[in-house]
Design a binder for these strands. Structure first.
Length: 276
DNA sequence: CGGACAACCTGGCGGC
DNA sequence: TGCCGCCAGGTTGTCC
């Protein structure tokens, strides 16, 4: 489940092989269903000959700055971007959705088992990006700004952290992690937090995401780095638990509880995160 | 705005 | 061992 740390890890790894390259074309092994915002022929026509000038991230989106337009990719659940030598008859990727041949004999590939991933071409990213909150790891994201935004919102914390318009890049794993670090129950309501608790949550969000990024992301489910290697963050999770993972709370040894909050599997320690 | 829920997808896991 | 059914999850869209 690529979230901010996983997407940022992919962006950093892809810059070296991609910046300065020219995209020759786009090939879709199967007709794209809802994957693109343009018919495949038009998509290929518009991207052919475009240089890759920069690669950045906004929330969970990868943004390739081309000549006069942008390629915007969302990995969703199972999307994977990687670069391989083009002519080598390597084993065909079973879930290959798009191939972008490049001018140096390599190709950028978008693979996606679940078909949730999206690939957009637009003159400007804002044309396809939804409303997004601040980047939690940016210097411009301050405790004061977080507190001011929090005071405008109501509802349970877990749902708030998952709201990309409130804060960008947090997904199910790091939401549970941030709440555990902050010692806040996922069903606590935003309007119930003291200033001190809100500041704890601010630092916890940044800590959870920073640690995940330092460990190259959490390889739970499908996520792999562009070079195919797993991240390491999954070994250090405090509260989030994948299937069959029965590890207790690392702080107090209490079994981790799993509930559903807003249709999402939610994991917390009933001792460290007292219920509202 | 908040909350609930369906839809999109399909591999893989749990259960039998 | 084999088969079935359901779960996982980010986001959008709908409805109340």
């Amino acid at each position: 489940m690529p979230e901010l740390p996983e997407v940022e890890t992919a962006v950093r790894a892809l810059r070296a092989p991609l910046i300065g390259r020219t995209i020759l074309s786009a090939h879709f092994p199967e007709p794209p269903r809802r994957m693109t915002n343009l018919p495949p022929e038009l998509f290929a026509e518009r991207i052919s000959g475009e240089p890759i000038r920069a690669l950045t991230r906004r929330a969970k989106y990868l943004i390739f700055q081309l000549g006069g337009q942008s390629l915007i990719v969302h990995l969703k659940m199972s999307g994977h971007l990687y670069v391989v030598p083009r002519e080598r008859a390597d084993p065909m990727d079973r879930w290959l959705r798009v191939r972008f041949p490049l001018d140096d004999g390599t190709e950028l590939r978008f693979s996606d088992a679940r078909r949730f991933g999206r690939v957009y071409l637009a003159a400007r990213p804002e044309e396809v990006l939804p409303p997004l909150g601040p980047e939690p790891l940016d210097d411009s994201f301050t405790p004061d700004q977080f507190l001011a935004r929090l005071r405008k919102r109501k509802g349970v914390l877990k749902a708030l952290l998952l709201d990309q318009a409130f804060i960008a890049g947090v997904g199910n794993i790091y939401a549970d992690e941030a709440l555990h670090i902050a010692a806040l129950h996922p069903l606590r309501r935003a309007e119930s937090l003291s200033d001190a608790e809100a500041e704890r949550l601010y630092h916890a969000i940044r800590q959870a995401l920073s640690e995940g990024l330092a460990r190259m992301g959490a390889s739970i489910g499908w996520y792999r780095q562009p070079n195919g290697e797993r991240g390491e963050a999954q070994h250090y999770l405090r509260a989030y638990r994948g299937r069959g993972d029965r590890r207790p709370c690392p702080l107090c040894g209490t079994p981790i509880c799993t509930i559903r909050v807003g249709q999402r599997g939610t994991h917390f320690c009933p001792t460290c995160q007292p219920p509202p």
